[in-house]
Design a protein around this nucleic acid. Structure first.
Lengths: 147, 147
DNA sequence: GAGTAGATTAGAATAATTCCATTTATTTCT
DNA sequence: AGAAATAAATGGAATTATTCTAATCTACTC
């Protein structure tokens, strides 16, 4: 029973699954654990590699299945940047993403209610959005420019 | 020489290409014409079907080549919604997209300077973005709900 | 009007994701 | 506890959007 998933998160997962009549399998727990452990917006493939260190025989199809489940349970969000492979993110609060051209890193940019409602006001009358995706492409501060 | 592309747009295309040492070929002109003609955010495949009515032998690879060129020339923008096929849009002014869950239609949502700079202020100090993608998923006004 | 760089073409290749049929696990019922 | 029923995992095949490749074609330049 030694898994790295902390108690709080493990309970969150259990409850989210139970409320949908789904089971907290080893695979699902482990995938969720890996996503929480290193919050660098990994792709399904990245996650596969990391989970395999703990469950060496897990297949990529299962990774996709687990991820779908976690997304349905609203524990994980999908991040789409251009047409690059989908990345996954355990930040459940509303946020945007910043993608650095130099390092490839992806950062969360928090969107509080004030920001969210400012964005919603861009919509013409009669339009209502349940999902807002906002992403930035540019350069972060740690990029060193040598002149 | 009868092509549907209006004079202004034809000139815009010619100049944009010339400044990059590229040629205004029949294929490029026709692809651009089709994108301007029906601004419903078509995919490469949609565009292929439409262009084939005028140039029956054009290949999908050429459609992709032409689109790449038009994007480079900044005459056309790519629109990425989730992982759906890339769509193309001749609206060169800054704008967001609204995607209707019911009809699948995609609408432009204009982003004036005020809105753009409001969004830019979400970024932490030191981060600068050259590209901002904003998209909404929800329901538009023409959706009729029968209770 | 020939040469050359630029474009187009068809089809093969790639890559992310989904599908499918089978096997394995887990819960439920008795 | 054991059997039946349901849910999940698995490997591999299938799909789909897109890119690559190598050959052919076209259009400006001299």
């Amino acid at each position: 029973m030694k898994t790295s998933l902390p108690e709080t998160e493990r309970n969150r997962l259990k409850h989210a699954l139970k409320s949908r009549n789904l089971r907290p399998t080893r695979q699902r727990t482990c995938v969720y654990g890996v996503i929480l452990e290193k919050r660098d917006h990994p792709t399904a493939d990245d996650i596969h590699l990391r989970v395999r260190e703990k469950l060496p025989s897990i297949s990529l199809a299962t990774i996709y299945n687990c991820l779908d489940t976690l997304v349905e349970c609203e524990l994980v969000k999908q991040v789409h940047l251009d047409r690059a492979p989908t990345r996954f993110c355990p930040n459940r609060t509303p946020h945007a993403h910043f993608h650095c051209r130099d390092t490839g890193q992806v950062y969360d940019v928090s969107l509080d209610d004030k920001r969210l409602s400012a964005i919603e006001q861009f919509l013409p009358d009669g339009f209502t959005a349940d999902t807002i995706e906002l992403s930035f492409l540019g350069r972060g501060p740690e990029t060193i420019t040598v002149s």
